[in-house]
Structure formats: structure tokens, C-alpha cells
Computed example of a mutant assay.
Amino acid sequence: MTFTEPEEGDRPVPSWPLTLSFIVPPHSAQFGYGGTLEPSDYLKRLTAYMDAAEAIGVTGAFVYDFPVAMDPWLAGFDVLAGSTALEPIVAVRPHQESAASVARRVADLGYRFGRPTHVNLVAGATRPSRAAADDHGDKVAARAELGRYAERLRTELDQRCDPATGRSLLVTPSSATPGLVPADCVLMMARPRTALAESVDRAREEQHTDRVSMLVGVVARDTEDEAWAAAHRLGTPDRRQQIAGRMFMSQVVSSEHLASYALAEEEEIHDERLWYGAPARGIDAPKLVGSVDQVAAWLMSCRALGVTDLIIDLAPDSAEYALVGRVVQACVCP
């Protein structure tokens, strides 16, 4: 989503965030566990989330590809078919799909729906999905191959996609492993501001991009006390959720997730309101907790550090997006 702000003289003030995205809800009863829903129930939930997200101006729809998730291309099709403006960002594993095959799917979806589908290049967050990638022998070699794949995919997309549909962007998660992966935007989880500043600077220098997208959850209410009460209700321990979180954590190899786990072990709350206390933290991004104005102020501090785009982590209920919308509006018109 691109906001229009007042102009300063002859120069327009850059909009922020450049894009606003959300996480597409899964077809399971809970993320990562709980059994699959009936297709009609899944589509009803998906529609409720998409309608609520679109109502606050969300245009990006991130589709995960964890081992228990539905095929991300099918979920992306559901997003395009069931929404009016959402553009899916589909997770793609290079060792599973050729660049030509991915570009063909993106081009065909653009033809079918008249708006772009974007690609999130992931090396694989969990060990089972990394089996083929580990054949490269080491992480540096695997990242170099990811970079070459990104170059091939960009070429294929430029050749196959209709420019009138809109440019399909390449996104890739930040990584502690050195090596250029040419992409339009680097994705990272929220983290304490000192660490965030270091991560943003490194990503921009190493990956040669000015676009940095931050994934964060939001629990905002009219007052700080109401927000923390809501956060603790959402984070009420659930045995199945805790087991699913521990199982996920035991399989993870993603440096982004591992960094979040380390921060969660250090302290439950960082930088006043960055909360790592959810029992499913093995799956969830950290959450900003506070009043609408407090959360907006924290996000605006991230703008000053170089964050350009926002991804709102999966909310427990579609009604949460109305509050997220108030936060984002406060960022636009502080």
C-alpha cells in the first residue's frame, strides 16, 4: 500500500510504509497444528481476514511455505480469486522449483487476474525442507546458489511477465550468512532498535537495496493497560500450542528465527513494548504492545532506522486489523 502525503515545496514527502502486508491465515485450525479445516471454513476465514486487511489498505499477502502449510501457489490463487486488490507474495524454495517454472506461474497468474504476484525466495526455515539445499556442503555455498537463482528468476520474470500487469518483486529474508542475493526487498523480523539498526545497515550495504521490510505483530488498544491485558489473554498458555512451538523451534535453521529465540531467552520485553512472551513464539514474530499512539511511535522510530515496508504478523482474529489500521494511520498523520 502506498500512502500519499503532503508535499514540501516541489518535493513530495516519501510515503511510509511503502507497502503494508499481512500474513495469509493457514488452512489448519491453528498455525502449525490443530488439523485442517473443512474447505468451506478455510475459505470463510480467509475471506474474513482479506476483507479486514483490505479495509485498512493492505495490498501485500505473504504466503508461508512451512512443511504443514498448504501449497503456497494454491493459497496464492485463493488470495487472488477472493480479493480485489491483494497481491500475494509466494514463498519459493529454489531447490524445489526451477526459475522458469516459477516465472511461468507468476506470468500466468498476472494474465489471469490482472495484478502481479511476487516471490519470496527462501532457503528453507526448517531442517526437513533444507535437505536438498544442504547438499551444497556449507551455508556460504548454498547462499551463493540462492543468489544465482535470484538472477535467473529476475531474467525469466522480465521476459515472461506483461509490464502492463505491474512488476513482480523479488523478496528474500535477511540472513547471517554473507553473500549477495539480488532482490528488490530484504525481509527481517522486528528486533530491539539497536540490533535492528545494525541489521538494516548490513542488509542495505550487502544486498544493494534500499527496501527493508519488517515483520512484526501488533497488539494495540486505546490504552497501554488494555493492550497488555489483551496480549496476555492472547498469550494464555495452551499445551498444544506450546508443543507445536517447541517442535518448530527444534527444526529451525533460519537465522532470523534463531535470533528471535535468543532474544526471547534474554528477556520477555525489549525496548518498552517489543514482546516475546507468546507461548507460540517458536512460530510467531515478536509483537508490539501498547496504545495506538505508542505502537505508532515505535514503528516511526523504525522508519528513522531505515525500515521502508511493514508486514503485520498473523493476527488471532480478523477484527484486530481495524486496530492495526489506526496504528498505521497514526504513522501517516502523526
Rank of each mutant, 00 (worst) to 15 (best):
G82R: 14
T84Q: 13
T59L: 12
L80R: 05
V79L: 12
M70R: 09
L74R: 04
P67A: 10
E54H: 07
G76M: 01
G82T: 12
T84S: 15
T47R: 14
V63W: 06
L46V: 04
D51N: 13
T59K: 07
A52W: 07
A53G: 15
M70N: 02
G60Q: 05
P67R: 10
G60N: 04
G82S: 08
A48T: 11
A52H: 08
V58N: 04
D78P: 06
L80I: 11
G60A: 02
P72K: 04
W73A: 00
A48R: 12
I56V: 14
M50H: 04
D71H: 02
A81M: 12
G76Q: 07
W73Q: 01
D51G: 09
T47V: 06
A81P: 02
G82H: 12
G60M: 03
D65N: 15
D51P: 07
P67I: 05
A53C: 13
G60T: 03
I56T: 07
P67Y: 03
T84I: 02
Y64K: 11
V58H: 10
W73D: 00
L46S: 05
V68F: 07
W73G: 01
F66W: 02
T84R: 15
F77E: 14
T59A: 14
T59E: 14
W73E: 00
V79T: 05
G76D: 02
E54S: 09
G57L: 12
A69W: 01
D65L: 06
M50I: 13
Y64V: 12
T47F: 01
M70T: 02
A52K: 04
G82D: 02
A53V: 08
G57E: 05
F77I: 10
G82M: 03
P67S: 12
P67T: 08
D65M: 09
I56S: 09
A81G: 01
F77H: 11
T47P: 00
S83W: 03
Y64A: 15
G76C: 02
V58M: 10
A75Q: 14
F66D: 09
T84G: 12
W73M: 00
T59Y: 03
F66P: 00
D78H: 15
L80P: 11
E54A: 11
A48K: 08
G82A: 01
M50P: 06
T59S: 13
A61S: 11
L46P: 01
D65T: 05
Y64P: 12
L46K: 01
A69S: 15
D51L: 12
F77S: 09
V63R: 04
M50E: 06
E54Y: 09
F66E: 05
E54T: 08
Y49M: 04
V58A: 13
I56W: 08
D78S: 09
A53L: 07
G82V: 01
M50C: 13
G57I: 10
M50K: 00
S83Q: 10
T59F: 07
A81I: 06
A53S: 09
E54Q: 10
A75T: 13
M70W: 00
D51E: 15
P72W: 00
A53M: 04
P67W: 05
W73N: 02
G60E: 02
D71K: 02
P72G: 06
A75K: 09
A61G: 08
V58P: 01
A55I: 00
Y49L: 06
A81E: 13
Y64G: 00
D51R: 14
G57W: 06
A75M: 15
